[in-house]
Amino acid sequence: MDGVIPAIKVEDITVAYRENPVLWDVDLEVPPGVLMAIVGPNGAGKTTLLKSILGLVRPAAGRVFIKGEPLSRQRRLIGYVPQRSSVDWDFPTTALDVVMMGRYSELGWFRRPGRRERELAMQALERVGMTDFANRQISQLSGGQQQRVFLARALVQDSEIYFLDEPFAGVDVTTEKAIVAILKELRDRGRTLLVVHHDLSTLAEYFDWVLLLNVRAIAAGPVATTATPELLAMTYGGRSAYLMNQGGAEH
């Protein structure tokens, strides 16, 4: 990675809730143009790491650089898909309206979204296959459709670096494949993506890079050389059903 400015650089991030460390001294460099997963057991701090990089959680120590600069100067480069369960889907608004929210910061103060924002939002909805649902109230959407709306909102941000928190949680297989296709397409167009993921069985199929995280960063690098049985065992402490199945198959 010498000579190339990493898309995301995390230095010594430590986060603690009360006295318990959630993240301990995590370092990470994400090269530009990769589709990278963060995997680890429950409570490993995956979401917290994502939120600390985005400045949504204040770390006890550590620094974050986006393309070599502090986050505050690079907000415009960032797109974010929070966990679907983090919002109230009974909020009185439509799918189209939620997608347009992705343009609010670009619009600036006091300006209302107009025809241009509407067009961009419709294009984004089309890319995720949700054109027919544009004017649906969001509580009437299925889990998969809600996730697509969230992805469309991030697409409309037209960012260089995307952060996605569990985009496959509680969605149907069709939606999962559709989302993966879009993530890969973004990667192929040179965007960088950091995705909290928890299904080891699809890791190699979906992602090219991976961070193994369990409070500490166990390892990071290309999936082929990083997601080895030894390192995964270190990450999960032998508690992964997937690993046990794999182990069973070998014997």
């Binding site: 939120k51 985005l54 400045g55 949504l56 505050s72 907000r75 415009r76 960032i78 974010y80 929070p82 983090s86 919002v87 109230d88 909020f91 608004t93 939620v98 929210m101 609010y104 910061s105 619009l107 103060w109 209302r112 979204p113 909102r153 941000q157 952060f163």
Partner: peptide, 18 residues
Amino acid sequence: KEFKLISFDPQFAASTGL
């Protein structure tokens, strides 16, 4: 629009630098 966004999804709002 800002009040709408922070009421619906404060985390996303903060991530965009609002």
